[in-house]
Design a protein around this nucleic acid. Structure first.
Lengths: 341, 341
DNA sequence: AGGATTATTGTAAACGTATACAATGAGTCT
DNA sequence: AGACTCATTGTATACGTTTACAATAATCCT
């Protein structure tokens, strides 16, 4: 193993000088830099990041704590976070929590032990509730989940507005008996639910018993919930889901029950996943600007790392409504049954 | 910051003793352990992993280097790797290479600098070619890509056999003009191509000009390649793709050209993604045992970390052919055109 | 019983780097 | 010219652990 001492010796300078040129400090003469770099290249020296981190008491790895990497939303986020982080010389440690509060504290502790520079985190409601209690002693930015009355950087979607728009779109296209399934682990689900209900109210519609569900954001839950709705005597005309996992489950149920989209049942969901546009008819969605979210979160974090005292900020992004066939305007035949036959 | 010294003081013992109980060494009396643990709990002490890693010259983080986390195959792999790794007390650093050989060496160096315990890696062909040259000085296990004549643990699919089976299935169902698109970055694509061609040969079929393509595993490439095939005067009866990214692109092209599956065109692909079963007709695929692959790779790595001298082993898993509607037996009408009308 | 062996704990050095402080030398000013 | 400043480099300590080695106490054997 070649260390800084070897480089110093080879270059005929002190270890301090080597360290200084390698950390790009000012006040080093070009000659010094040259000598050192030559020795570095010759010996193929690479600084030991662990030692560097121990001594300088700071590291350039950041933690990314998400609930499920298989959820395409988080996949996209991680990708964006990693890209921007690596680009700035930071590494990323990825953790899956499965929306499990215990795992969350586990990983949070881990991050502390690893002495990470900061974390990007999408906490469960549970963890969010006593967020101030666990006082993270490192820079933190919250993504996707909203956090109130606490000073922490965050970047999230305008969930209420997006859900409102999506629901509104359904209603304007002639759907009235609208079922909905919301994720229950996060604040996100609750906010989208709020937007959904607002839209109903503004059109003098009410949510119907048995057609308003809440479940952990997993495919099977979407499937089960939708089956219940579809098998009931009075199935909905449309289903709204607050994320793609639930949406995929609903689609499975639709397939199983051999319902036709959108004539028998319309479907709209959050997150523009691969399958949403491949399926026929394609699914109407709210597309979240995942790249933007991940990138912004990382930038926010890096800025806070550089300047811990800066005022916190909340970045709120807008979702984009992408209208596709799954929510096409209800056909006349169905609207005015008298015309049938 | 509370350190080991504080704990030692509080417990009335030496720092060495504290360290010994915390690293679960034998030869400590129960009383000692008790005293130390009490102090640890009281002070809420947590060992600094960076310092530990520096001193002990080993860490418990492993690197996972994949080409694209958005590819569902790698998403599934990472999830499995992380789960098993964390379960054994190891952390995971995730890196995306975009199948870019430069990025690969970049991250490989990074892993070295970070002093990771080992890595799990799916190298490009390019990197694989001079694999021995970059002599990784840490335990490595290669996944998904095959590597010859070099002693390194690896776990991969029996690609030739799987591709053969998939092709064979098409042929048996009456498809003869079969187009194919293979990933070009990895050895995987080449192997699957081999299996594909073998199957053709065994049925006295030949690959047709313009119907055998190679491209980086991205959706747009699948799309472009398929469009070319479909727009040609003599489009294929079926298309075979060697991974889900290409497959998704092909499906987009099919949709755009308004071809019907499987009557106008059958489609089969590798990897059982979410959309493969949601689409109608659902897609026939070779499902890779991703959980198994990730888990096995991690275990292999941890074993090698524990015992560096052990003989290397190559684990070869079988893919599962899942037959769905996209490759249904060609209808009689098309088979025997004379019957038509 | 006394020496040899073993089990347990303590002392202090080491891991590889960054950095506070000291030291040196080159300008600058009066 | 001498005192003073400032830029540059060197010396040596600190980061928070683990661990080789020393030391002590306890046990065993003849």
């Amino acid at each position: 193993m070649v260390g800084i001492k070897d480089v110093a010796e080879a270059a005929g300078v002190s270890t301090a000088s080597v360290s200084r040129v390698l950390t790009n400090q000012p006040n080093v003469t070009p000659e010094l830099r040259e000598k050192v770099m030559a020795a570095v290249k010759q010996l193929n020296y690479r600084p030991n990041l662990v030692a560097r981190s121990l001594r300088s008491q700071q590291s350039n790895t950041i933690g990314l704590i998400v609930s499920d990497i298989r959820n395409p939303f988080f996949t996209a986020i991680s990708r964006a976070v990693e890209d921007t982080a690596y680009q700035q010389g930071f590494r990323v440690i990825l953790c899956n929590t499965d929306e499990d509060a215990e795992k969350e504290t586990l990983y949070l502790n881990l991050m502390r032990d690893e002495n990470v520079a900061g974390i990007i985190f999408s906490p469960t409601r549970q963890t969010l509730a006593n967020f101030s209690a666990l006082d993270l002693n490192f820079p933190t930015v919250v993504v996707d989940r909203s956090i109130k009355n606490i000073n922490v950087d965050s970047v999230l979607l305008d969930n209420v507005a997006a859900a409102y728009r999506l629901t509104n779109h359904l209603i304007e296209n002639g759907y009235q008996r609208i079922g909905a399934i919301f994720g229950e682990a996060s604040t996100t689900g609750a906010e989208r639910r709020h937007g959904f209900l607002e839209a109903l109210k503004d059109h003098n519609l009410t949510s119907l018993p048995g057609l308003l569900k809440t479940a952990p954001p997993k495919i099977e839950n979407g499937y089960e919930s939708a089956l219940e709705m579809l098998k009931s005597g009075t199935p909905p005309e449309a289903i709204f889901t607050s994320n793609s996992m639930l949406g995929a489950g609903v689609l499975m149920a639709i397939r199983e029950m051999k319902f036709n989209m959108p004539d028998d049942l319309a479907l709209v969901t959050f997150d523009d996943t691969a399958w949403a546009s491949l399926v026929q008819p394609a699914i109407t969605v709210i597309a979240q600007p995942t790249d933007e979210i991940g990138k912004t979160a990382t930038q926010l974090l890096l800025q806070r790392i550089a300047e811990p005292g800066r005022p916190t900020r909340k970045v709120i992004l807008d979702g984009e409504l992408i209208v596709r066939g799954s929510s096409a305007a209800r056909s006349l035949a169905l609207h005015i049954p008298v015309l049938k036959v």
